[in-house]
Design a protein around this nucleic acid. Sequence first.
DNA 1: ATAAATACTTACTATTTAGTAAGTATTCCC
DNA 2: GGGAATACTTACTAAATAGTAAGTATTTAT
Lengths: 191, 191
Amino acid sequence: MTARNTDTKEEIVRIGTALIKSHGYNAFSYADIAEKLQVRNAAIHYHFRGKEDLLSEIIDQYIESYTLLDKQLKAAGASATVVLEKFIERYSCLVDANSICIIGSIASDFNTLPESVKEKVKQLVGLVLKLVEQTLVAGKKTGEFTFSEVPKTQTLLVMTNLAAGVQLARITGKRDYDTIKKAIIRQLKKG
Amino acid sequence: MTARNTDTKEEIVRIGTALIKSHGYNAFSYADIAEKLQVRNAAIHYHFRGKEDLLSEIIDQYIESYTLLDKQLKAAGASATVVLEKFIERYSCLVDANSICIIGSIASDFNTLPESVKEKVKQLVGLVLKLVEQTLVAGKKTGEFTFSEVPKTQTLLVMTNLAAGVQLARITGKRDYDTIKKAIIRQLKKG
DNA sequence: ATAAATACTTACTATTTAGTAAGTATTCCC
DNA sequence: GGGAATACTTACTAAATAGTAAGTATTTAT
């Protein structure tokens, strides 16, 4: 038995994230993570004092991830169409994994979270909305997109279609999600 | 102390429904309901064997409520615009109560529910989608609406905008919801 | 007037959850 | 090679959660 396993902490975050997206934040306990990781409950507490600290770290990692993505996209100079496709692809993967997006999952439990975590969620949502809006604006400039709503509004429409689309897919099946996905793209090209 | 209070059962359903919409299904216990109702825990178990039975009843009542609404609307011959406005009004009220729609809330916890409840949720979602689609079709026929997507697709877009709109409003504030609400109506009138 | 049904309460149990304290094994560093 | 730090484990506790069994008060129906 190795006394030092450098990726246990990362694994906890990975499993915790998966559990939030598949079962919801208030539906899992440290015991669930411990069992999957084949460690004792206290090992999770060693890395994260409590569940809220774990959630906080998970959101931090999403913020980091989206900040990085933002930078990469700007540097790479990818077309708006490609960026949007990659973004939507994330949601399609969620549907295939019978999961929903972390923001939608947390939104359901929002009123049960401490203020510090709520603030971080706000930050994350702001970041994602900014990223999508910038992509829509860029695409409009190049003529890739032709929507008629102001960018912020179009962003809200796309985001809500996607977020609730994956939720709906869980209940009524993937076909409804696919219908929504195609409509989003259509709307951006002839709105 | 009256040994028979005919509306305790209704009150349990009312409080349970409110808790699901504000805190999420997996975030409340019978103790929360018991405290609010000023009865003992076992009183809740008397009316509903377990939490799943309560959830089942709550969904049944939504199904009944929407079935009734459907009939009333057909009988009253209200204009599609009015029906849609009333429907949207339900979501606006949710935002004001810092709550989300029951379907969105349950979607987050969907994988933790027993198969029998999942089936009922499917039924409810089917009913709501049908109601909205019929309204959109009716409105198109009268010229009130002019959207270009097929009715089913437009229904999915409207529903996801609303469902995720109330979720987003919790995090970023009511203004984003209002923006979405106005855009939905605009899209139906010039899509 | 009383038997049965209803709507609870008290009192309890078993399990899960969240968390802590103290100890142990390994590895890093000087 | 001897701390110090790291990454755990064992072993516990306190509280919450879910649920049941048995009893009680009131109401309804006969």
